Structure formats: structure tokens, C-alpha cells
Computed example of a mutant assay.
Amino acid sequence: MTQDTVEIPDDELAATLATRGESAQARTRAEAAFRTLYDRHAKRLLAFLGGRVNAAALDDVHQDVWAKVWQAVPTRYHGGNFRAWVHQVARNVVIDHGRKRGFAPLTEGENVVDHRQADDATAVEAERRAALAKCLQKLERANAAVADLVRSRVAGESYDSYCTRTGMPSDKAYRAFHQAKAQLQACVEGISP
């Protein structure tokens, strides 16, 4: 016997967050709504942040984003695409994080090069790319499907699109990609000087 579950839309969950101060019962409902929103959006938000902050700061920035979401939903979220709104909050947190650390974040498409170190950076980047190519070949020999997943994700294909195209379950794709990413990073660090 299967039970049909109705997924509560993000807008309704966010509205529940906005009423959290009315009573203890409202606070409990708001916390449950927040957990649901977190469960729905945390993985993609982590992936988004992973490309914008260093690994050491990733968890702190991720927590800061969700703290801002908790605070801002009642007054700043006015409906619409919740995921897009959360990502806008995340962009602002990343900017604030960068300012606290003493640098301005890059805008999309902007490249900053310290010309005094450009030659060294170019050489190191070339070595890392060569090491990554070797590691990808090694991954290809070990597991062609996972190598295809990595190449697809790096090329910008979404998990949903990849899973639809290949028939791989999304939970398996997430797990496989993150394991492969860790293996590739360890491999590259082991090969490059």
C-alpha cells in the first residue's frame, strides 16, 4: 500500500516561517517548515557555494546563509522562486564573507591577474590541468559511467538532466559525483608538485 504524499510548496513553507512568533505551536510549525526547506535546497546550495568560497570556509558560509534565510524570510521573501531567493541571499553572504577577509569578490566574467605572479600561476595551472587529465583517464579506466558523470557536471549539465539522460537515480549520481570529486582531488594533489 503506497501513501500519496503532497509536497507543500516552498511559498507555503516560507509563509509558515513568517508566523513563527505568534505562539510556541507556531514556532514548532515554523521550525518544521524550515527543516523541510533546508532538506530541499541545502545540497544545491552547497554546490553553488562550493564554487565561490574555499573548502575551509564552506560549512561556515553555508550555515550563515541558512541563518540569514531564517531571519529574512518573514520580511524579505515575498513569494516567487524560493531557490532563486536563497541563492541571492547566498551571493550576498559570499560578498560579506569576502569583505570580512579583506578582498572583493569577482563579478561574473571578471578575471583578476597579479601580473607579477602570472608566469608562475600559468605554469602551475598547466601542471594541474595535466595532472587532472591523467586522473580523469585513470577514473575512465576504473569506472566509465562515473567519468561520464564528472565530465557532464563539469560541462554544466544538471543532475536532473544527467539522470534523465542516463537513467541513473539522482541519489546515486550525487554520491558518485562527490566521491569522484574527492578521488580526483586526491589524485591531482598526489601527482602535481
Rank of each mutant, 00 (worst) to 15 (best):
Met1Arg: 11
Val6Ala: 15
Glu7Arg: 15
Ile8Asp: 08
Ile8Met: 13
Asp10Val: 00
Glu12Lys: 08
Ala15Met: 10
Thr16Gln: 01
Glu22Pro: 02
Ala26Gln: 07
Thr28Asp: 11
Arg29Cys: 06
Arg29Glu: 08
Ala32Pro: 03
Ala32Asn: 11
Ala32Val: 10
Ala33Ile: 01
Phe34Ser: 03
Thr36Phe: 07
Asp39Gln: 08
Arg40Pro: 02
His41Glu: 08
His41Ile: 07
Ala42Asn: 13
Leu45Asp: 01
Leu46Gly: 09
Ala47His: 11
Phe48Cys: 02
Gly50Ser: 04
Gly50Ala: 03
Asn54His: 13
Ala57Ser: 11
Ala57Tyr: 00
Asp59Leu: 06
Asp59Val: 05
Asp60Trp: 03
Gln63Tyr: 06
Asp64Phe: 02
Asp64Glu: 14
Trp66Phe: 10
Lys68Asp: 07
Gln71Lys: 15
Gln71Thr: 13
Arg76Trp: 00
Tyr77Val: 05
His78Ala: 12
Ala84Ile: 07
Trp85Arg: 01
His87Phe: 14
Val89Asp: 02
Val93Asn: 00
Val94Trp: 01
Val94Pro: 00
Val94Glu: 02
His97Lys: 07
Gly98Thr: 05
Lys100Gln: 09
Gly102Leu: 09
Phe103Pro: 00
Pro105Lys: 08
Pro105Cys: 10
Thr107Pro: 11
Thr107Ile: 13
Gly109Trp: 09
Gly109Gln: 08
Asn111Ile: 15
Val112Met: 10
Val113Lys: 10
Val113Phe: 09
Asp114Lys: 01
Arg116Asp: 11
Gln117Val: 06
Thr122Asp: 13
Glu125Ser: 07
Glu127Leu: 04
Arg129Thr: 08
Arg129Tyr: 11
Ala130Tyr: 05
Lys138Thr: 14
Lys138Ala: 14
Glu140Trp: 05
Arg141Gln: 11
Ala142Tyr: 09
Asn143Leu: 10
Asn143Thr: 11
Val146His: 05
Ser152Val: 07
Ser158Arg: 12
Asp160Thr: 11
Gly167Ser: 05
Asp171Met: 12
Asp171Glu: 11
Lys172Arg: 14
Lys172His: 12
Ala176Thr: 05
His178Cys: 10
His178Gln: 13
Ala182Ile: 06
Ala182Tyr: 04
Ala182Asn: 05
Leu184Asn: 02
Cys187Arg: 04
Cys187Gly: 07
Val188Leu: 00
Gly190Val: 08
Gly190Lys: 09
Ile191Leu: 14
Ile191Val: 15
Ile191Trp: 06
